[in-house]
Simulated assay, not measured.
Amino acid sequence: MAEHNEKGKQAEEWAKDWLIGKGYEFLDANYRYKHAEIDLIFKFKGLLIFVEVKYRSGTGFGYAEEFVDYTKRKLIVKAADQYIHEKDWHHDIRFDIVGVYKDKNGNVNFRQFEDAFY
């Protein structure tokens, strides 16, 4: 596996643990539908939350939310529609982006963008 893929998977684990620590109920990871993938899926306060995780080793090239373009958002929504259908979900949903940032000292920080798109 390429190094950037390994970092991405590690960032997803960190984000998952961080969100669980905030009271989110973990449901699924790496849900795939055709060419689309949702990194993490949670329940929180009656919402079904689809989370895109983005790892950045710094902010010199921009923040995480800047790297989820229109095409990526469209694919995530398509996969979410399928997940909602499969689970027969009839309540509200939300799409979040969680940026995982590692500073020069190796500390990991998080930045959550709730209701980032739809």
Score class of each variant (00 low, 15 high):
1 M>C: 15
32 R>S: 12
104 K>T: 15
4 H>I: 08
71 T>G: 00
51 V>Q: 03
84 I>H: 12
55 Y>I: 00
30 N>I: 05
39 D>R: 04
18 W>V: 05
41 I>Q: 02
59 T>Q: 00
110 F>A: 07
28 D>V: 05
104 K>Y: 11
92 D>N: 15
34 K>R: 08
77 V>C: 12
93 I>R: 07
98 V>Y: 05
27 L>Y: 08
115 D>Q: 06
85 H>A: 14
49 I>T: 12
31 Y>N: 02
18 W>Q: 05
2 A>T: 14
108 V>Y: 04
41 I>E: 01
80 A>K: 01
20 I>M: 04
69 D>K: 10
82 Q>D: 15
34 K>A: 10
11 A>H: 00
14 W>I: 05
1 M>H: 15
23 G>W: 06
74 K>I: 08
54 K>I: 01
80 A>I: 03
18 W>P: 03
8 G>Y: 04
25 E>Q: 09
46 G>W: 09
116 A>S: 15
27 L>S: 11
51 V>F: 01
28 D>K: 05
116 A>C: 13
111 R>V: 15
101 Y>M: 10
86 E>Y: 09
51 V>W: 00
65 E>Q: 06
111 R>F: 13
99 G>A: 03
50 F>S: 00
103 D>H: 12
52 E>G: 06
116 A>N: 13
43 K>P: 10
46 G>D: 08
40 L>K: 05
30 N>W: 00
87 K>C: 09
109 N>T: 13
62 G>E: 10
90 H>T: 10
6 E>I: 14
48 L>W: 11
89 W>S: 09
46 G>I: 07
2 A>K: 14
77 V>E: 12
112 Q>N: 14
23 G>C: 10
3 E>W: 06
50 F>Y: 01
88 D>M: 01
103 D>G: 08
74 K>W: 09
66 E>A: 02
42 F>E: 01
7 K>C: 08
103 D>Q: 12
63 Y>P: 03
86 E>Q: 15
11 A>P: 01
115 D>K: 05
79 A>Q: 08
14 W>P: 02
106 G>I: 04
95 F>M: 05
99 G>H: 01
72 K>V: 14
52 E>F: 02
4 H>D: 11
85 H>R: 11
30 N>T: 09
